[in-house]
Design a protein around this nucleic acid. Sequence first.
DNA 1: GACGCTAGACCGACCAGTCGGTATGCTTGA
DNA 2: TCAAGCATACCGACTGGTCGGTCTAGCGTC
Lengths: 215, 215
Amino acid sequence: MARRATGEHRVTGDRVNGERPAGGSLEEPVRQRLLAEATRLFAGRGFESTSVQEIVAAAGVTKGAMYHYFDSKDDLLHEIYARVLRLQMERLNRFADAEGPVAERLHAAATDVVVTTVDNLDDSKIFFRSMHQLTPETYKSVRAERRRYHERFRDLVAEGQRDGVFRADIPAEMVVDFFFGSVHHLGTWYHPDGPLTGQEVGRHFADLLLNSLRP
Amino acid sequence: MARRATGEHRVTGDRVNGERPAGGSLEEPVRQRLLAEATRLFAGRGFESTSVQEIVAAAGVTKGAMYHYFDSKDDLLHEIYARVLRLQMERLNRFADAEGPVAERLHAAATDVVVTTVDNLDDSKIFFRSMHQLTPETYKSVRAERRRYHERFRDLVAEGQRDGVFRADIPAEMVVDFFFGSVHHLGTWYHPDGPLTGQEVGRHFADLLLNSLRP
DNA sequence: GACGCTAGACCGACCAGTCGGTATGCTTGA
DNA sequence: TCAAGCATACCGACTGGTCGGTCTAGCGTC
């Protein structure tokens, strides 16, 4: 817990000193490398099927290093979640707080969340596959954070319903669950080297959402 | 593989004999009990976090019984998938092959898949959480079956687009992925003892889908 | 007495996490 | 200026325990 601060220091501390590692990915500080490799492996094989040994081997360190920066394997997963949640909340706030009609703001936010999701597909895969492997307390805190995000989004929908620009006969809450179901499942079918860019999918998804809300 | 026939026999064989077990659920033949308990446990804790020992204990038998009816833990999971896929494909066909305008048939099929999903929420949770734990071959066959299901649904959408009753500027394929994302995620937020029935959610979801397809 | 079914002890593999230890470089004070 | 003292970063062997799956023996029913 308190230990986390230690790791953050290193991020700058390491860059400043004179060591000059060879490999490109080895430039990154150990903590970042562990997070990156864990993300990749968790997304590919799942949390439970990935051993700590595999993670540290992929990051080019040993267990000692991992347990220096993280409390447990669970803590590692939690950090991955925290990073995603922070990023998405930040972006949503930016779009929701912008100027303009609510329909435009919702469209922009919806497009953006799709783009961000396909840009971080591994995170998305981990999210809905491995969340239930977290310890109960961690699980609760992640869900609470997630709920706050959904509520922000729901308020946008509800605003449009109050203004009469969206149909109001379907609960805003459910519209959000409906839409985010689609977004979370991008990881199961979207391929970055397929025919569609994230932008295109985002626009289509946002169109479908806005159209479904037409009165 | 061939062994599976053995288990099916038992279903009737067991009911006939004179044993008189105490608990209600013990009336069911062993194979069914194993499948039922495995489904419940996998949905709650995930495939990897559920041990074979826990499954057989819940079903009131021992490992010997389980490995008599199933090849492996993986095979058990595969059977759960096969059961769901069979059921859903059957129902979709019934709705898709019915008489009437395509919009009505799609609406009915969409409502039904939601209702069926919330009626078997455990199956749904397992599906999108544990699919990637299957051995590669099993995984492939499950995906192929799933794809056939999606294609049947997609053809309904495409038919409506050809007829001009649905907007045609969004690929039918993507509409299906959009919709089924929402359906698969019911397991993460829907609660049977919540304020909404499966029928209500189904109707809302189908309304959203049909509305989003309005030209 | 053969066969379907089940029990449960057992095996080898593996895994998360621990711990004693080394290395590196920063800080402090004379 | 430099050396002593100390915190940080990391190593890797090891431990206690769990797991999936196997195997042999026994039970009941034709």
